[in-house]
C-alpha cells in the first residue's frame, strides 16, 4: 500500500515561465507531509506534478526526477493514467460528479475502470465512506445526488471517492479552505486516521492545521513575483514550528502566528 515519494532536482515550467526551482525532498510512507508558504510560491504546482496532473495544462513541463518507491513516474513508457491510479488527489473545492448519486460518486473510479461486480462495489462504497467518516451521515440516502450534501460532507465524499480506488499516495490541495471549522476538524481527524494506510501530502495555508496534522513540513518561498519558487527547508513539523534552521521560515511562521 503506502509508498514513499522522492523528488530529485525538480524544476517546473509553465511554457517559458520558470515556476518552481530545484526541489529535493522525500515523503516517507505512512506519514503526513504538509506544504506551506506564501501564495504563488508553487505549492499547488509541485503537488500537481506528483501525479502528473499538471500535464493537463498546455505548455507545463517538469525536469528532474519524481520517484514512487524508486520508480520514476515520468519514465518513458509510464502512463499518466496508471500513475494517477496509484496517486490520488483531493482538490480545494469539493467536486462531486453532479449527475451521480452518492454511491456512484464513491465507486466512480472503480466503475469506470471496468469493475462490474455489484457486491464488491457495495463493499468498497461502505468501506470508503466509513474511511472518510461519512458513512453514518449518508448511509440512508446513498441514491441521492452527491451535490445535495453540505460542503464539508461533499469534501469527505471526495475523499471517499479518492480512497475507493485504493491509491498508494493521497495528495490534498487545501482540502479545508472552503469549509467551516467543524468540517475542518472532521477532515483533520480523518487525515490522522488515513495516515495509517496512506502516504499523504497536504497543501495548507493554515499553520495550525499543518502543525496539527503533519509529521513533516516543507516551507516554500519565492524571492519576488515573477521569480521561481523554491523549497526553503523541510523538516519535522515540530522543529519547523519551534526552531527552524532558516531565518526565512521563522519570519514567515512568526509573522503569521504572531
Amino acid at each position: 500500500m503506502a509508498k514513499r515519494l522522492d523528488l530529485k532536482d525538480v524544476d517546473i515550467y509553465y511554457g517559458d515561465f520558470h515556476a518552481v526551482q530545484n526541489v529535493n525532498l522525500s515523503v516517507p510512507p505512512r506519514s503526513v507531509t504538509s506544504f506551506i508558504g506564501p501564495s504563488g510560491c508553487g505549492k499547488s504546482t509541485v503537488l500537481r506534478t506528483l501525479n502528473r496532473m499538471h500535464e493537463e495544462i498546455p505548455g507545463a513541463r517538469v525536469e528532474g526526477q519524481i520517484q514512487l518507491d524508486g520508480e520514476d513516474i515520468y519514465a518513458r513508457g509510464s502512463d499518466a493514467v496508471a500513475v494517477r491510479r496509484t496517486i490520488g488527489m483531493v482538490f480545494q473545492r469539493p467536486n462531486p460528479f453532479p449527475t451521480m448519486s452518492i454511491r456512484d460518486n464513491v465507486v466512480a473510479g472503480l466503475k469506470l475502470q471496468g469493475v462490474r461486480d455489484k457486491k464488491k462495489l457495495d463493499e468498497v462504497c461502505e468501506a470508503s465512506l466509513r474511511g472518510a467518516n461519512l458513512w453514518k451521515e449518508v448511509s440512508g440516502r446513498l441514491d441521492k445526488p452527491g451535490g445535495g450534501l453540505s460542503g464539508g460532507q461533499q469534501q469527505r465524499l471526495c475523499i471517499a471517492r479518492a480512497i475507493a480506488v485504493q491509491p498508494d499516495v493521497l495528495l490534498m490541495d487545501e482540502p479545508c479552505s472552503a469549509l467551516d471549522p467543524i468540517s475542518t476538524l472532521a477532515i483533520e481527524d480523518l487525515i490522522g486516521d488515513l495516515k495509517k494506510d496512506y502516504t499523504i501530502v497536504i497543501v495548507t495555508h493554515n499553520m495550525q492545521q499543518a502543525a496539527r496534522v503533519s509529521d513533516q513540513t516543507a516551507f516554500f518561498n519565492l524571492e519576488a513575483t515573477g521569480k521561481p519558487g523554491h523549497l526553503v527547508e523541510i523538516d519535522d513539523t515540530e522543529k519547523i514550528f519551534s526552531n527552524p534552521t532558516e531565518r526565512e521560515t521563522e519570519d514567515y511562521i512568526s509573522g503569521r502566528f504572531g
Partner: peptide
C-alpha cells in the same frame, strides 16, 4: 467545470472515458 474533468483524471480514468461518462 474543469474541476470535474480533473476529479475524473485524478481517479485514473482516461480522457475518452472522462468525456463519455462524466
Amino acid at each position: 467545470p474543469d474541476e470535474l474533468r480533473e476529479a475524473s483524471y485524478a481517479l485514473g480514468i482516461p480522457k475518452w472515458k472522462t468525456i463519455l461518462r462524466i
